[in-house]
Write a protein that binds this DNA or RNA. Structure first.
Lengths: 233, 233
DNA sequence: CGCTGTGTTGATCTTCTTCAACCCGCGTGG
DNA sequence: CCACGCGGGTTGAAGAAGATCAACACAGCG
């Protein structure tokens, strides 16, 4: 399995006393329900570039992201790659496993992450007679779908300049502060459907025009108003 | 409600004896389960350009598509529009309603369609104690997600020529025969993230090079091998 | 008959890709 | 310790691809 390579195993998770209990997939569960979890839920730490699972791997578990950031990558007929979604805290990756499908993407870590591994038979059993979990599952599925739609309308439409601006806005708007981590230019390109060179040019241009400022390596402070203007044309 | 405008009401559906019973959302239901459907399931016929629902409308029902084709449209900050998905036979549109969300897209008919309207409280009630329906729901959600991902990797990546070729392949490959209906150039553009002019140019080019042939107005016979070559570059 | 909407085509201009060079920070091996 | 190579980012110049604006063909229809 991919994650065994260099993953730091943190031990069996204590779901009942999980610090994310209210926002995580198991939010709807009652205390008694946790008795039904016979198999241990494992928790991992993952470093950037590590692979959680690969497209085509048999789907034997879903993963809730406790912290950090992963990319879901799909490959094109011509060998190129395209990032179709980002998953971050409280998201669930690998839902397709619940339907017996192999994973549809490579899941690769972008920012140091902590994840819980939920074997599909555990989730399925709980799901069978647990409307709360059920509801949460649908919520995650729908969230993924909304993300995918937004990706298409916001990040795959318009000029390269607009796309980079919208990407930055998306990254910033879920932080409290007007700053965000930006990833490699190659990844930016793969997200927006542009070349790494154009991605680089746009970021450099924004820096020159003081729309963004690199306050630490890979970390940018953003002028949201300017970005909004650029994003809307 | 949008659909009342010109929709042809076909009457209350007889789900138990539905001709699509094995492939439709209610596939998993037992005979006894149908007793729980107190509210009538309505069936509609819709003509091209009719609107099933609009983005922002309160989501009070999901719709199973019996036949025909609809587009799901989302609007951009700058007013432009982007088609994010197609829904066709056995697909379900408006799943977000089950989570109490307003509809996220305009759902507009492309090819004459017949749909069933399933009020969300009916679906929710059946879903509560019915693993079969449950499973089917997840399946639809996942199908929508796969579609969205494919849309991104196949139809929003590469040159305009490749995108048009891939679109044609997608349309053809779910038919038995190597022919398909193509929609207006404007819609093609909105699907692929290109202008109507480029869409027109590509289609015209394919016709000139005998990659496709218009065997009836709007209907094309396709040389799949050639399309595959073009799609892969 | 003229009008309108859709498709097509042409000419021009902008944008993006492509290929290339170069910089810089970093680690490695001589 | 230093030379070297390597990867990531940046920049330049050239060309290709697509957008834009404009014109026109054509069918359907009042």
């Amino acid at each position: 399995m991919s994650i065994t390579s260099k993953a730091a195993w943190r031990g069996e998770a204590d779901c009942l006393n999980c610090s994310l209990r209210t926002s995580v997939l198991f939010a709807g569960l009652e205390e008694k329900d946790f008795d039904q979890i016979h198999r241990p839920i494992e928790e991992f730490n993952l470093a950037p570039h590590q692979v959680l699972y690969r497209a085509g791997d048999p789907g034997d578990a879903v993963y809730t992201i406790r912290s950090g950031l992963l990319k879901l990558v799909q490959y094109l007929p011509d060998g190129g790659q395209r990032i179709v979604r980002l998953v971050h805290s409280t998201d669930v990756a690998g839902l397709e496993a619940l339907l017996g499908q192999p994973y549809q993407h490579d899941a690769v870590v972008l920012q140091p992450a902590s994840v819980c591994r939920l074997p599909i038979d555990v989730v399925k059993r709980l799901d069978r007679d647990n409307p709360g979990l059920h509801q949460e599952l649908m919520r995650r599925w729908q969230r993924a779908l909304s993300e995918a739609d937004a990706w298409l309308t916001q990040l795959s439409t318009g000029t390269a300049r607009q796309r980079v601006a919208r990407l930055l806005l998306r990254l910033v708007e879920r932080n409290g502060e007007p700053a965000c981590e930006l990833f490699s230019r190659e990844d930016v390109g793969a997200m927006l459907g542009i070349t790494t060179e154009t991605a680089s040019r746009m970021v450099a241009e924004f820096k020159r025009k003081n729309v963004i400022a690199e306050i630490a390596p890979g970390r940018f402070r953003c002028d949201i108003k300017s970005l909004r203007t650029i994003a809307a044309d």
